[in-house]
């Protein structure tokens, strides 16, 4: 990943190399154990389940590629994939840009920083189910605050979680509203940019926008990469907000996020994980759910590799440094 040169021991110094290896191993040991136990084992189990018929109660029965074959005649799966792709594209871009924007504004504030920072972060402190429900109430057409506000300008409020065309944008709005965590991460990174870099740029006569573009952005790019990858994962795993928005839209919200009708309205909130959950725990077909999980994992892992490689290339090119 990085072009750090200092730590690589010169060849031939066998003992130093062994010691270096031991150090790395020591630092990574808990992670390696944890990785095997809490990721490796579930991954193997998931892949194994995906070749079986498994009703969650009786021992899985091998059924070859049946689960994978069924994917091709499952109309809801197509819908779920389309919904999740929508979120991966829209939510990832919107969330990263939004968080970066808000963090950049906050970073420039001179007074009241603490208060505004806290206000912006407040929503991400709320339990996800409650946050979604409250947002639902705020967006509620016919008497909600946003509806009233739009009414002042003579605009009809969208029906949000009742309209298949607006349910996903509505959920995206919720996700932006609770993106305070990413905002704070980016803010911390922005404030962490060494002051002398700005001073140097200022001496060269760069205005604030130029400084932001040429100093801030490149320096915080590792954190931005985190933001993008984190948003992609969030989009891929979007579950609670989709379930709660769907249940509230169908008029059956409850305080814990359980629901009678997943995907309301018209399956527009049926994300891949929601459908996976439905198949595994509502229809008791864990084999199929595991096949879905396997496919999701393989595709998203491949996308991540491409994304990470590309980000690395870009940042390397921009900074003019040697590649890894």
């Amino acid at each position: 990943m990085t072009a750090t040169l200092g730590a690589r021991p010169a060849p031939g110094r066998g003992r130093a190399r062994a010691r270096h290896r031991l150090t790395v191993l020591g630092f990574m040991a808990p992670a390696i154990i944890g990785f095997v136990l809490f990721f490796g084992y579930p991954l193997v189990a998931t892949v194994v389940f995906s070749f079986t018929k498994y009703d969650l109660i009786n021992a899985p029965e091998f059924n070859g590629l049946d689960n994978y074959a069924y994917m091709f005649k499952d109309p809801l799966l197509t819908k779920a994939i389309a919904n999740t792709l929508w979120f991966v594209v829209v939510l990832t871009i919107a969330r990263t840009v939004f968080a970066l924007g808000v963090a950049s504004v906050i970073a420039r504030l001179k007074s009241g920083v603490g208060l505004i920072r806290t206000l912006c972060y407040l929503p991400s402190l709320a339990p996800p189910v409650a946050a979604t429900l409250v947002f639902f109430m705020v967006l509620r057409p016919n008497g909600g605050p946003v509806d009233n506000l739009l009414g002042v300008f003579g605009i009809d409020s969208p029906l949000w979680f009742s309209d298949p065309a607006w349910a996903k944008p509505g959920i995206t709005a919720i996700m932006l509203w609770i993106s305070g965590d990413l905002m704070i991460i980016i803010l911390a990174a922005i404030l962490d940019v060494p002051q002398e870099q700005y001073e140097a740029a200022e001496l060269d006569g760069a205005g604030p926008i130029r400084r932001w573009w040429h100093v801030t952005l490149p320096t915080i790019s590792p954190v931005l990469l985190f933001g993008i990858v984190n948003s992609v994962i969030l989009a891929l795993q979007l579950f609670t907000q989709a379930v709660v928005a769907g249940s509230a839209g169908s008029g059956a919200a409850d305080a814990t996020g359980s629901t009678k009708y997943l995907g309301f309205p018209d399956n527009s909130t049926l994300t891949f994980p929601v459908y996976l959950y439905t198949q595994g725990f509502r229809y008791f077909d864990m084999g199929y759910a595991a096949a879905m999980a396997t496919v999701l994992f393989v595709i998203s892992f491949a996308v991540t590799i491409v994304l990470v490689q590309r980000m690395r290339k870009n940042s390397t090119a921009e900074e003019g440094g040697p590649g890894a």
Binding site: M1, T4, L5, A7, R8, H20, R21, T23, V24, F27, M28, A31, F35, F38, F39, Y41, P42, L43, A45, T46, F49, L56, V229, I233, L236, Q237, F239, P273, L276, Y277, G280, F281, M286, A289, A290, A293, L296, F297, S300, F301, T304, I305, V308, A324
Partner: peptide, 28 residues
């Protein structure tokens, strides 16, 4: 630190976040 397999390890860390928790919960 510089070590062989580091890039792979990093990708695996990211990959570990990509298994849907609903499924992981079953074997765990």
């Amino acid at each position: 630190l510089q070590w062989r397999g580091r890039n792979l390890a990093f990708l695996l860390v990211i990959g570990a976040m990509m298994l849907p928790p609903q499924v992981v919960a079953v074997p765990l």
